[in-house]
Simulated assay, not measured.
Amino acid sequence: MTGSREAERPEPSIPARAQAEPGTVHLVGAGPGDPDLLTVRARWVLETADVVFHDALVREAMVSSLPKSTEVVDVGKRVEHKTPQSAINERLVERARAGDAVVRLKGGDPFVYGRGGEEASYLAERDVPFAVVPGVSSVIAAPGVAGIPLTHRDVASRVTVITGHETPEKEESALDWAALADDVASGATLVMVMGVRTLDRNVAALCEHGVDGETPIALVERATWADQRVTRATLSTVVDRAAAADVSPPATAIVGDVVAHRDAIEDVLRPFEPA
């Protein structure tokens, strides 16, 4: 299905500045999962798109309510159904050049471990116009809904975010585990995304470089989803507790003294109620 459909879009209530443009790719952040956390601009762009290519972590509720004229394509990278990034790039270019208003809907924020930067470069190299609509990253959302402040005036004044896919044994790793350990030991907050499968190695690397085993850590699974869970532990106990609780991706790990803040407010913190 190609070609723009001017007669079918947009709804009059959507400002012209926020409508998806024909011949343009819109890199849109879907947020952590709950449809209520989709930004207003993202919803407007989605509702005026001709075609939406979405990731595996995007909730069905976000796309099921779109106009029937909108083509919705799942290009998630699940193990059983993995769409190569090269194929996604080519399809974005193909549809934009055909005159469609294209949305690439990505979990969280498109430029935070979402390959949005790669897609932007691919489009730019081929002179395909694109726009970016930021989303609420799980880096912020997961600690937030769990009652864990990433910074606290009395505890932590800086935050470091890494991907857990990087393992300590990887040759020429981009991660400096000694520096990360020093940061945590000095009171900084460390956030690890996509690190469930490498949790044991990442925790071991921090401890081997001097972080106290009693340092608190929390694992927030499926933040803002109906089955959200929080597993609280210390670095010395988290691997066993995660195994016992059968923690599974997607999950965000927060390491540092700020995690203890949850203990003081947990009893009065209302759970996040997803749409």
Rank of each mutant, 00 (worst) to 15 (best):
R197C: 00
V159W: 10
D200V: 07
V220E: 11
W177Y: 11
A223Y: 07
V193W: 08
R158H: 10
N202A: 01
V211R: 00
A205H: 04
L199H: 05
V203K: 08
A223H: 10
G213T: 04
D176M: 02
L199N: 02
A223V: 02
A204G: 04
E208Q: 10
L219G: 03
V184N: 07
L180S: 04
L180E: 05
G164W: 08
R222D: 09
I217W: 13
D176C: 02
V191G: 09
V203M: 09
R201T: 03
I162C: 06
E172G: 15
V191Q: 12
L206Y: 06
R222Y: 08
E172W: 15
T198P: 11
V220T: 07
H165W: 07
G195M: 01
A179Y: 07
R197V: 02
N202W: 02
A188Q: 11
R201F: 06
H165F: 12
R201S: 13
G213H: 09
A205Q: 03
P216G: 10
V159N: 03
D212F: 11
L190K: 07
G195K: 00
V220D: 10
E214D: 15
A204I: 00
T215W: 12
A204T: 01
P216I: 03
K170R: 15
S173W: 10
D182G: 13
V193F: 15
E171D: 15
D182V: 00
A185H: 04
V184I: 05
E171T: 14
L199W: 13
L180P: 05
R197N: 14
L219W: 07
M194R: 08
H209D: 05
T160M: 07
W177R: 01
M192N: 08
T198Q: 14
C207N: 03
I217N: 12
